[in-house]
Amino acid sequence: MTGLSLQDLRIALIAAAQTVIDSQDMLTKADQAIGDGDHGLGMARGFKAFRDVLEINSYPDVPAMLKAAGQAIMMTSGGASGVIFGTLFMGAAKPVTGTVLDGKGLAAALVSGLEAVRARGKANVGDKTMVDALAPAAGAALVASERTSVFAEVAYSAAAAAEAGLEATKAMVATTGKAKGLGERAIGFIDPGALTLSLFLRSFACAAAGSGSVAP
């Protein structure tokens, strides 16, 4: 399968959102280690709104769907993470067009989302934020989209790179956000935002594969 139709994209996004919702306790524990412990609640609330707008409404094209989902998170999550994840999806909507999202479109969406997040939050790779998962995911998707037209392979490549980026945050000292004040005490713990993104991308890839693609 070379791309997701609007219906398949909606199904994959809803499945990924549900994974984040179901992972509230895991996200809370990750945030308690280096933050104030509210990340799980905020993400569950935001992604419930994300899920609900996609279940209730219909959209004329891919960018409208992504923009609406991003706005839902931004309006309901609360806190910096809600703004950042809302920005990700709203940024991802900018370069894509039409009613099918193919591998190149997914890569472009991730790159654009990364640029939007960086512009909003000023975080870079190595700062122990979700950017440490998002940047490698976007890069891997770009490479994969040049190698294959199979959508799920591009999505799986992005998910695997995000998971590697998440693991790398354990060795990082936070330079931004609430964990900044911990200094080296944050070493050994993963970043909660990077965990959220990794969970979302893995679930999205699995749902995309289930819609007709073959997992690598």
Rank of each mutant, 00 (worst) to 15 (best):
A179Y: 01
A49M: 12
G165F: 04
S5Q: 09
A16D: 02
G46V: 07
G35L: 10
D52Q: 15
V96T: 06
E146R: 12
A68V: 07
L6W: 03
G46H: 07
M26F: 12
A158E: 05
L142C: 11
S203F: 08
K48N: 11
D61S: 14
M90G: 10
F204C: 09
G35D: 08
E55P: 04
L66W: 00
A207H: 04
F200M: 06
D52G: 09
G37K: 09
L195R: 12
K122R: 15
I187T: 11
N57A: 15
Y156D: 04
Q32V: 03
G37N: 08
E163S: 15
V62P: 00
A208V: 15
A159Y: 13
L142D: 13
P192A: 12
D38S: 06
Q7L: 10
F85A: 00
A44F: 02
L101Q: 01
A141W: 04
I84P: 01
M74P: 03
G37M: 04
S203T: 12
V131Q: 06
K178Q: 13
K48F: 03
A68N: 04
V20H: 03
G42F: 03
Q71D: 00
A158Y: 07
E153L: 13
G79P: 04
L66E: 00
T176A: 13
D52H: 14
